[in-house]
């Protein structure tokens, strides 16, 4: 939290650009810019953290921050049209003012990742904070801090892949290995077909001196965790990010707990080791 005064007040931001991400047109990326330059300076996030997007009159929705802090001057949020707040957000046009409250929660363990190989495994629209993490690691000035970087990202169909243009850039780079896959291709798809866990098993990144971060739909996580284990990643080196219904985002309102841990402030990023001792209630 940067807001030292009132943690419930959102910062006003202007929607600078809206990108429709998928064919189903229910995923949009909102690039937002703070109205007050002081707020830009005050907002320091680390990949993995989230913010409450605030629409006055509708409510708030906790959304992972998809941009890296190395992308200065703006924030990115990729939002699926789901309920009241996100539905209204999808109706907005560029130039409209909304609110951002945060940054909230714990980030990916960047310090632990430094000097190590990092494997990123993402599925569907859960790729947002992994995009922030990857972008952070490969940006100028940071790339040398990390060892080999492997990105495995999949979606149901080519049209459902997020950040399509950027993925092409990543594939062209020689300082990270990018594996993009879809469950089922279409007529134009020349890339890989196959489920994320299968591709992970084929790529078989080494678990030596490496951490693995994985985000995706529950069904993907279910089949990916055994592969991660088989590859030899320790539970303490396996990083996941959870979703939970939230309100305050600061550990007061009592909505997002799993056992004694609050997803809003103790997460959303957890190691598998931390999750293994929590009750199965998420």
């Amino acid at each position: 939290m940067n807001q030292t005064t009132n943690p419930y007040m959102p910062y006003p931001v202007r929607i600078d650009r809206i990108t429709s991400e998928n064919e189903a047109r229910d995923l949009k990326t909102f690039k937002v810019v703070f109205l007050d330059p002081e707020h830009t300076k005050a907002f320091h996030h680390i990949p993995g953290q989230f913010a409450e997007l605030s629409l006055l009159g509708k409510g708030e929705s906790p959304i992972g921050i998809a941009s890296s802090p190395t992308e200065e001057g703006h924030l990115l949020f990729t939002v699926k049209k789901t309920g009241v707040v996100t539905g209204e957000l999808h109706n907005l046009t560029e130039g409209k003012v909304i609110g951002v409250r945060g940054p909230l929660g714990k980030s990916y363990p960047i310090d632990r990742m430094k000097g190590k190989n990092v494997v990123i495994v993402g599925g569907g629209f859960a790729f947002t904070t992994l995009r922030a993490l990857t972008k952070y690691m490969i940006d100028d000035g940071n790339r040398d801090d990390f060892g080999e970087i492997t990105v495995i990202y999949g979606a149901r169909s080519p049209g459902e892949l997020l950040y399509k243009e950027e993925l092409k850039e990543w594939e062209a780079r020689d300082d990270l290995k990018t594996y993009i896959t879809v469950d089922k291709g279409d007529g134009n798809w020349k890339g890989r077909e196959g489920f994320v866990p299968t591709v992970l098993e084929e790529v078989a990144p080494s678990s030596k001196d490496a951490l693995i971060a994985v985000c995706g739909p529950p069904i993907m996580i279910k089949f990916t965790l055994p592969v991660i284990k088989k590859l030899g990643f320790a539970p303490s080196d396996t990083i996941l990010s959870l979703e939970m219904r939230m309100k305050c985002g600061i550990g007061k309102c009592g909505r997002c707990n799993i056992g004694s841990k609050y997803v809003c402030k103790d997460g959303p990023v957890f190691t598998l080791e931390e999750l293994d001792v929590l009750p199965n209630e998420y």
Partner: peptide, 24 residues
């Protein structure tokens, strides 16, 4: 017990964000 909800009450663009007691 201290769990609470946060909701918006609005009429024609004017309103307030409020918190109310809630229950697990």
């Amino acid at each position: 017990c201290h769990c609470f909800d946060i909701t918006d009450e609005t009429k024609k663009g004017v309103g307030r964000r409020v918190r109310n007691w809630d229950s697990c």
